[in-house]
Design a protein around this nucleic acid. Sequence first.
DNA 1: TACACGTGGCT
DNA 2: TAGCCAAGTGT
Length: 326
Amino acid sequence: MTPVHTSPTPVTPEVAHRLHRAITEWYAGAHRDLPWRDPDCSPWGILVSEIMLQQTPVVRVLPRWLEWMRRWPTPADLAEAATADVLRAWDRLGYPRRALRLQAAAQAIRDHHGGQVPDDHAALLALPGIGSYTAAAVTVFAFGGRQTVIDTNIRRVHARVVSGVALPGKSLSAAETRLAEDLMPEDRKLSVRWNQAVMELGALVCTARSPRCHECPVSADCAWLAAGSPPPAVAPRGQAWHGTDRQVRGAVMAVLRGADAAVPEDWLTVAHEIRIDGSVPLARGAEKPLEKLLSLDAPEQQRRRAVDGLVADGLAVRTDGGIALP
DNA sequence: TACACGTGGCT
DNA sequence: TAGCCAAGTGT
């Protein structure tokens, strides 16, 4: 292995070997027992888990994944489902466009890959909703390929252990990619375990806010810890939420998921016409989303922008009766 | 490159 | 409590 010179302290083959051994041994005893890690889990199940886990915590994915796999155990099953059912099953996982793209991916798998999830990295990358990370993850975790997986957890572990900084930069750099590639064990089977183990270390121990360095198997080799755990160079910019278009889109989607008929557009866009007295033809359970929509007190213009955006994104459609799930 | 895109638990 | 954060992708 070529020494890595992208950090203040180059990673020698000896250090790399020590990291491989320490982190994979830690993984063997400390990893979470998740259903998509079961040796019997299908590539489709793993692909579904990877999409659901994008920007979403494991605890929230678990119940949705179990229900999803029960209803649509193969790509062909999901390909043929009604999109409105797919969006309702996605429930409150967030970023519902992922559900749309997952169904589109299922249709592409049915139409162009004989119904089988492709094991080829390039073919995976060509599917809707699958980018660099997910293509690599499926290649590795579903098919045991030797690919460099880089997610936010892995970036953080590398940033601390090797580069000695608290957090990685906003976007993935070429140097980071090269570091990750250079750190990969040559042996294919070990590389699979390495990818999985570093990710898990970042998720359970080397966390963003309060890392548990006393539990870390590589604390002795950690450049960040050795440097005295310096704080991040630049404080990450907070994610705005209250009053944003996203919040309003989310509220509108919640209403549409709970409705058993098209919702008149004015009820969504004109605040004073949204009522929660039970006279609106919405399914039971929709009251709460409606209350949320009301409490937002979002300007009419913003509500219209949200509805227009949802329609433009294919998450909703305009019908004679109003707005509905597609 | 930077921004838009959901949601809810945790500190 | 207000803000941070979570297995990213598409434009």
